[in-house]
Design a protein around this nucleic acid. Structure first.
Lengths: 222, 222
DNA sequence: AACACAGAAATTATCTATAATTTTAGATCG
DNA sequence: CGATCTAAAATTATAGATAATTTCTGTGTT
């Protein structure tokens, strides 16, 4: 991950915090105190406040005037919401990207799929998965659409890590392969349809809570 | 428009600037200088910088590190992009909203349509149009989706005002009526299909530029 | 006239200080 | 014992000052 040494401090802080929120290092609902963050990053709180605004825009944090900002909470409803938005927007992006996809790009997407299938932990699986989606969608050349999709992927990753914090079993991604096959055959509509279904598939898994009880965890696995 | 007197200064400034950008009072590409804005609003530049971050998130401004922020430029490509995103997302929202639509809501949406048909200027037409869309979509109960759609509507309004700054001829919105009829009959799919087409209709109109030449202006009219 | 350059002016980004508000904790009262 | 009030502590929001960078402008050079 590029450290972006020429970025402004506010950007660096927002990236670092986004990483923690996504990985689950900071709990949903936890308060983010500007002075504490400022001290940790050896800055004043001014850039910290700007970083907070960025996180807010990404939907990773929520702020109430005069009452500070906290890590955004989420529930099954929001997981579903993000899944549906991704389905709608990624399908749109793929339709526009399809005419510009070269076999070189599709080969790289296949590499990403293989890397995902080989992953033994959530983190590397997520990275490979995101690479796959980004590869086949970027050629749509619609920057606003891609930026929105990126934010949704960040949310997806958060849900994923929350549910599958540690355990992960390797699995072969048939959907990705079906999408690639359709694209290679020039059948964009079929690829788009599969993609739309793919990102709406919500995995469920029982997890043990801190109190010892088991509840069900949900996440987008695509 | 609620002035939000309990808002933080940054929010007030971002709303005021958003208004100007959308209405075209500030030109695309124009620089926003933090000290000037701060002076105008009688504040320091700290809240101004936060306001800039908000505008950036909405896609109304773009910023380059150390080089300031400018009003986002746009072209036909972006108009199309926003139209397609709106189509995809509003269709999604309507599908979820449909089961929760009451005849009271639909009546209010019809009022909004009538108000739009009677409008003699772009500004009031846009307001009525936005009210219509908001009324039939809000019951979907998906906050993230609605927030994204709101930002897209802001962009749409900007395109619209840029093209139809002064002249506006009243027109009867058949699409809105067809959508309402379908919804009243419980035919959500048909309503969604019409809505999807509706927001992708891009109006074209010749406008005279400052130099006297005529170019074509484009905007989403739905 | 076009170009490059140096210095000045303007502007952004950050820091330190202060004011306003909220949260916390302890004490008091029913 | 719980609820409510109050004062202290913590925290957010804004202001004012400073450092760093960019942009502008005029001048000299080819």
């Amino acid at each position: 991950m590029a450290k972006g040494t020429d970025d402004t401090i506010a950007v660096r802080i927002s990236k670092a915090l986004a990483d923690r929120i996504i990985s689950g290092a900071i709990e949903p609902g936890a308060r983010l105190r500007q002075d504490h963050v400022a001290e940790e990053f050896n800055t004043s709180h001014v850039p910290v406040r700007e970083a907070f605004r960025r996180l807010e825009a990404q939907g990773l944090a929520v702020s109430e005037p005069r009452r500070g900002v906290r890590v955004a909470a989420f529930d099954l409803g929001e997981v579903k919401e993000v899944a549906e938005m991704r389905a709608a927007l990624e399908v749109l992006a793929l339709r526009h990207a399809a005419p510009h996809l070269t076999s070189a790009i599709l080969d790289r997407a296949e590499e990403a799929t293989k890397a995902g299938d080989k992953s033994h932990d959530v983190r590397s699986w997520e990275e490979a998965n995101r690479a796959f989606h980004r590869l086949i969608l970027t050629p749509c050349g619609m920057p606003r659409l891609l930026a929105t999709i990126d934010d949704l992927h960040a949310a997806s990753a958060r849900f994923l890590f929350a549910a599958w914090r540690s355990e992960w079993e390797t699995r072969t991604d048939q959907d990705h392969r079906a999408i690639l096959t359709a694209l290679r055959q020039g059948n964009a509509e079929s690829a788009a349809a599969t993609l739309g279904r793919h990102v709406q598939w919500i995995g469920r898994k029982p997890v043990r809570t801190a109190s010892g009880a088991t509840r069900e965890a949900f996440a987008i696995v695509g």
